[in-house]
């Protein structure tokens, strides 16, 4: 078993590194004057990252396909969001769809 000291050091290093990633963006941003064009590019980048996160989280578990229940739930949520359903409905429908499919034996 790994010692407590090692775990604490590992946690602190992970926390410090994560903080550095979070810190760098706002600091660099404050130093340079951003043109509206660059400003828009930053927003596009963040949306692109989030979209990629949605796709990989919805479809994959590690390196493999996660099964049908989760992507089906996300798809139902996405459809409802596109039809301008309230946020609460979107989230609950996504969860309920996945849960129901699993109850029915769909992986």
């Amino acid at each position: 078993m790994i010692s407590a000291a090692t775990l604490i050091v590992a946690t602190v290093v992970l926390g410090a590194g994560t903080f550095a990633f979070r810190f760098a963006g706002p600091v660099l941003r404050a130093r340079v004057e951003l043109s509206p064009r660059v400003e828009k590019l930053m927003a596009i980048s963040a949306v692109t990252l989030l979209a990629a996160l949605v796709a990989t989280a919805a479809l994959l578990d590690g390196h493999e396909f996660v099964g049908f229940a989760r992507p089906a739930g996300v798809a139902v949520g996405g459809l409802l969001a596109w039809r301008k359903a309230p946020f609460v409905v979107v989230v609950l429908a996504a969860a309920a769809t996945a849960a129901l499919l699993r109850l029915l034996g769909v992986p």
Partner: peptide, 30 residues
Amino acid sequence: DAFGLDAAFPAVLLALVLPSLKDQATRRAA
């Protein structure tokens, strides 16, 4: 997973990102 929470979190981000995708350049990049 039994409550479908693993599907809820991608759906949260998707619902929040969807309005930004109306912009053509953003949609293409995403």
